[in-house]
Amino acid sequence: MSQTRIAVIVGSLRKDSYNQKLALALAHLAPSDFTFEHLRIDDLPLYKQDDDGNQASSVKRLKTEIAAAQGLLFVTPEYNRSIPGLMKNAIDHASRPYGQSAWAGKPAAVVGISVGATGTAMAQQHLRNVLSYLDVPTMGSPEIFLQFKEGFFDDRGHIGNEGTKKFLQGWMDKYVAWIKRHSAA
């Protein structure tokens, strides 16, 4: 059975990041033929167009990892009602130089978790706008706007609440179908 590789882009570097935990917990809900590879984005230089002709080795690595994936999973916190600069920097690097975007045509989904009552709704909407411009077919629903509360993750890093786990399993099932449908095209 061949593996479906998913490139995971998490916009948080915090040591105890809820979004890092969410990305890992979601991978536990996926079928065994799906592999989730967390891409490193913290070593990228700040994007500037002057470097398009001579991209840093970390940028080339990122673009190669994206190209090797059949799908994308963006897991974003919400900073000031938008996506973190870290994530935007990675998106900009991998989309350049113009006409050589690693993102184009890769099916994706956007999720996130926050302590706020609306989860990461605004950040996800901003990210969807960016991905739309980059020709990234992004799963529309179900959307995941999770609010972190104590006990959300169990001591193994899995989803702690059965109702939430059931909801996220349903989301994962639709995500898997979304990736398979778009990567077969």
Rank of each mutant, 00 (worst) to 15 (best):
M1F: 02
T4Q: 04
R5Q: 14
R5P: 02
A7E: 02
I9H: 06
I9S: 03
V10R: 07
S12N: 08
K15D: 11
D16K: 15
D16Y: 09
Y18N: 14
Q20N: 15
Q20I: 05
L22S: 09
A23W: 09
A25R: 07
A27H: 03
H28I: 00
H28D: 04
L29E: 10
S32G: 06
D33R: 09
D33T: 12
T35W: 05
T35K: 07
T35E: 11
F36N: 09
E37G: 00
E37K: 11
E37W: 13
E37M: 07
H38L: 08
L39S: 09
R40Q: 10
R40T: 13
D42T: 06
D42S: 10
D42R: 12
P45S: 01
P45Q: 05
Y47I: 10
K48R: 09
D51R: 15
D52C: 08
N54D: 04
A56C: 09
S57N: 06
K60W: 03
K63D: 05
K63G: 03
T64Y: 04
A67M: 04
A68N: 06
Q70L: 04
Q70D: 13
Q70K: 14
G71N: 00
G71E: 01
L73Y: 03
T76E: 02
P77I: 01
P77H: 02
N80A: 08
N80I: 03
N80C: 01
N80Y: 04
S82L: 04
P84N: 01
K88G: 01
D92Y: 13
S95P: 11
R96N: 07
R96A: 08
P97L: 10
G99L: 14
G99I: 15
Q100D: 14
S101M: 15
S101T: 14
A104E: 15
A108Q: 11
V110R: 09
V111P: 11
G112D: 06
I113G: 08
S114T: 02
V115P: 12
G116I: 13
A117L: 13
M122Q: 12
A123I: 04
Q124N: 06
Q125G: 05
Q125C: 03
L127K: 08
N129S: 09
N129A: 11
V130E: 12
V130S: 05
L131Y: 03
S132G: 05
S132L: 05
Y133I: 09
Y133S: 01
P137W: 08
G140H: 11
P142M: 08
E143W: 01
E143R: 03
E143L: 01
I144S: 09
L146P: 04
L146S: 14
F148N: 01
F148M: 08
K149C: 06
G151Y: 03
G151A: 02
F153R: 02
F153L: 06
D155M: 08
H158Q: 03
I159F: 12
I159W: 10
G160V: 13
G160I: 15
K165R: 15
K165E: 12
L168R: 00
L168D: 06
Q169A: 09
G170S: 10
W171Q: 00
K174A: 06
V176W: 08
V176G: 02
I179T: 03
I179W: 11
R181T: 12
A185Q: 12
A185S: 11
